[in-house]
Nucleic acid binder design. Structure first.
Lengths: 244, 244
DNA sequence: TTTTGATAAATCATCGATTATTTGTCAAGC
DNA sequence: GCTTGACAAATAATCGATGATTTATCAAAA
């Protein structure tokens, strides 16, 4: 299926602009599935709480059972999928209490990671933060253009991860990444527009400015508020849709 | 292989004292493997950093490939196993920096979870804490008897988990459980005796007493010290064995 | 001697088919 | 009418075999 390095046969896939070089990562079907399934869950294509029928999933993703099961097993780490013996896999459900926990943990984990980053982060990290902020501010978010929403989600996620990427604590970073994933699912499912009384751009800028200035208390307070506001916002939207 | 409910054929396994009733959980080979592999890694039977050869593992555990791969995929969540495309699975390596991160995160996560537990925990939780303390104090730990060490590890782990079990934050609890697993691997691998200058029993009692008295600062300070001392201890033992 | 490239061996990834379990259905008994 | 139990359909779990990739080996060339 995959043409090896040096092959003259062009691949028929959508990606692969450089057919003579092996792709970086994501070589196996199982690994590709992890990405595709994660995206499908976060974006809401796979409904929260719904059972994942292996036969149907197998068909709709055009894969065999083994890589599908392996991908789902790996997704348990992300908290996006749950499993029970002989009952199979299901998309993790959403709930008010789950959202509240995610918000709380993001406040705790991310402020801790940000403080650590400011303590030990180097100049390159500072630069990455400013670059991520700039990209975020230059990315348009228009509810009438769905593709801009997706793009904005990506750079927004990247901004928050960059903020804490200087902390030199890989386990902590992976936890934060997980929480951010779970949080993004709520936003992408329930929140297409931002609340009117917020200027999110300013919030991001304040966090970033405080961060590179290494003003720990200021930056962490701003970040905590930012996360908290998003949580409050989302909670309201969940309540409107009658989700307990 | 498995005799169904009501069957008159007795199982040949070591467990299953009540053959007429389905086991609670752990029904499938994959799930049993998760437990067995986790125990094998934490106990040090599977060497840290070593590659897991699927063919050999298949034979030594007497299972087929599919459940083995699925079990390993699930173990990634626990941070005990790492994976790379086309290179397979390996036991997560140990290092000084990894131990230090685990210690830091345990300090942060567990004190936060303990505070939350004291804030919202109910009377039943309090009772569970006192029971876990009592069991721990009554469990002997004799380096000359390996089976007592294993037993002690189990009740010790149970004590720490019970402490924070009142917090009503399932995601936080699972993170703490993961960190505790990783920490226990270091202790079981590198630390068979407790340091001479510590009275660990007193430390546990102080934490538990402060907890049920809902003295947040006292209990959390004692817990943080307790975790920190264990970390310092372990770090020394790692250094002695020349592990960077 | 070191490097390179081809080949062989080991190992991982995937598939299709088989077996085991759960869930849905419905009739018999209470 | 409600519960119980047997049967059938749907679904999950496992297996053995096949295909793909990586790693090891070693001879030829620089």
């Amino acid at each position: 299926m995959r043409s090896g390095p040096g092959s003259l046969i062009l691949e028929s896939g959508t990606e692969a602009a450089t057919p003579s070089f092996p792709d970086d990562g994501k070589n196996t079907i199982a690994s590709q599935l992890v990405s595709r399934l994660r995206e499908a869950i976060i974006s809401g294509q796979l409904e929260a709480g719904s059972k994942i029928n292996l036969d149907r999933a197998k068909q709709s993703f055009n894969v065999s059972l083994s890589p599908l099961r392996e991908a789902l097993a790996r997704l348990i780490s992300d908290g996006l999928v749950e499993f029970e013996d002989n009952r199979g896999y299901r998309v993790s459900p959403v709930s008010l209490s789950n959202l509240e926990e995610i918000t709380s943990l993001r406040e705790e984990f991310e402020t801790y990671a940000l403080r650590e980053s400011m303590r030990v982060g180097d100049v390159e990290w500072e630069g990455n933060v400013m670059r991520a902020l700039h990209r975020l501010n230059r990315t348009e978010r228009d509810a009438s253009k769905p593709e801009t929403l997706e793009q904005w989600e990506a750079v927004h996620r990247e901004f928050h991860l960059t903020l804490i990427s200087g902390c030199r604590k890989p386990l902590l970073l992976s936890f934060c990444k997980t929480m951010l994933n779970l949080n993004d699912r709520y936003r992408r499912t329930f929140l297409t527009r931002t609340s009117g009384d917020r200027n999110v751009s300013v919030e991001h800028s304040e966090i970033a400015q405080g961060t590179v200035a290494r003003d720990m208390d200021y930056a962490c307070d701003r970040l905590r508020e930012h996360i908290h506001r998003t949580g409050t916002n989302l909670r309201r939207h969940l309540a409107e849709k009658g989700i307990a």
